[in-house]
């Protein structure tokens, strides 16, 4: 998929993949979310299929979602916190990696098992399958690839390390690159030096991000945290709605 990785150093392909692509994806995500919020708020939903089938969903969905939450936390820690910081805190590299691997593998397996169950349910439960769009199928492919590459990579590197081999530390390649994106000075060389599995997983991740605003995954951005802090019963006047939908180009849609 990315043969230039073998070449070492950073070629033009690296520039495109690690210098340009992240920003394209960023624009897609931000622009896509803004666009969708303005023009398709009605389509912004989980599109739950629990009404059709709940027995498998009740196991698969929490397994997947909670697993994914841990995975996300793991990514945040791994990508955002520089290794110098953890070392300064007195966490040895070994301890760090063992902890990360343990959590990562457990959470990854849960996520993968969850989504496997969900996909199996989706395929075998008639009404759920009927309600599956092409958009959903594409999303599932990318999502599963992202999970599989991530988990596979983790397991593979853990295996190599256990066998006494040596693998590159992503905290010296992927993480600096990821952080450099946000300060608009992409460290292309760092990512170019990463091992191929990391690159593959990063590309899958970028693909998944690019899809986020345009699939049902968009529901992730409406995690109802505000619910914890609001009074139980919501009152609203008839005219308060246009304020909320003020940015929308089209007329206010009332509830019914």
């Amino acid at each position: 998929m990315n043969p230039e990785a073998e070449a070492g150093g950073s070629g033009p392909m690296d520039l495109v993949l690690w210098g340009v692509l992240p920003y394209v994806v960023l624009v897609l995500v931000v622009g896509g979310l803004v666009w969708r919020y303005r023009y398709d708020r009605f389509g912004w939903t989980t599109r739950s299929s629990e009404l059709y089938e709940s027995r498998l969903l009740r196991i698969g969905s929490p397994l997947f979602h909670f697993g994914l939450l841990v995975v996300i936390v793991g990514h945040v820690v791994g990508l955002l916190i520089p290794d110098t910081w953890t070392r300064a805190l007195g966490v040895s590299d070994t301890l760090y990696h063992v902890t990360a691997l343990a959590f990562g593998i457990v959470a990854g397996v849960c996520t993968l098992a969850g989504i496997a169950l969900l996909i199996w349910r989706r395929r075998t439960t008639g009404p759920v399958f009927s309600a599956t769009t092409r958009n959903d199928k594409l999303m599932y492919v990318v999502l599963v690839l992202a999970i599989v590459t991530g988990l596979g990579m983790t397991v593979y590197f853990a295996g190599v390390e256990l066998a006494g081999g040596h693998t590159g530390d992503y905290r010296e390649t992927v993480s600096p690159w990821f952080r450099s994106i946000w300060i608009l000075q992409p460290d292309i060389a760092a990512m170019a030096a990463a091992e191929p599995p990391y690159k593959l997983h990063a590309l899958m991740g970028l693909a998944l991000f690019a899809l986020l605003p345009f699939t049902r995954l968009v529901h992730a951005f409406s995690a109802p945290v505000g619910y914890l802090f609001r009074p139980y019963v919501v009152y609203r006047t008839r005219d308060s709605h246009p304020a909320a939908a003020g940015q929308s180009a089209r007329a206010t849609r009332r509830g019914w």
Binding site: R41, W44, T45, S48, P224, G255, W256
Partner: peptide
Amino acid sequence: LVDQDRCRGW
């Protein structure tokens, strides 16, 4: 009423 634009299907 349900605000259809804010309902996320939880």
